[in-house]
Design a protein around this nucleic acid. Sequence first.
DNA 1: CTTAGGATCGCCT
DNA 2: GGCGATCCTAAGC
Length: 193
Amino acid sequence: MRMNDSVAHIDFSAPSHEVARLLVGVTLLVDGVGGRIVETEAYDREDLASHSHAGQTSRNAAMFGPPAHTYVYRSYGIHWCLNFVCREQGHGAGVLIRALEPTEGIERMRQRRGMEDLRLLCSGPGRLCQALGVTGQYNGRRLDAPPFELLPVPCAMDIVCGPRIGISKAVDVPWRFGQRGSRFLSQAFREKG
DNA sequence: CTTAGGATCGCCT
DNA sequence: GGCGATCCTAAGC
């Protein structure tokens, strides 16, 4: 199978921190439901906080598969989290999708989440998976084919970066990226001024 | 506003 | 047996 690195005009063979930045503003849809990505985090093989750091296991195998595919894992035994695989096959890099601004299928997302508040529908990696219906079934799937759809960024994004959230290793690596000022972030970025 | 605890599963440089 | 790339609720200040 030939790998497609040009989904939504993004080169998924690039380093994960570059892909993470480029993904902010991209629209992510699963079966037509989703919104614009407003927050991402990069992980890499040479990264103490990454699932891939210790090498391949059955859980993280998709991270070592071809780029422009998904890596979906279970978090805290309860939630699902969605990543996009980067770099070359076998490298073990990915971008965690942390928050979306809901735009498509909002009522469907409200049903799945069991809440009304637009702001809380997709503002967190576990929340957005629940809203989009992403489960372990979607692990290792290619991003350029249904049910996934990635639409390019329509205009230049004002992007902030900072340390990643919810990790205990490599806490100072500034590999969290977000759309400046978005109210759909899982957490505000600390900015000077 | 901040902090604490519980839910629950796969993996263990 | 311990610990997460989390979320929700409840309680405290």
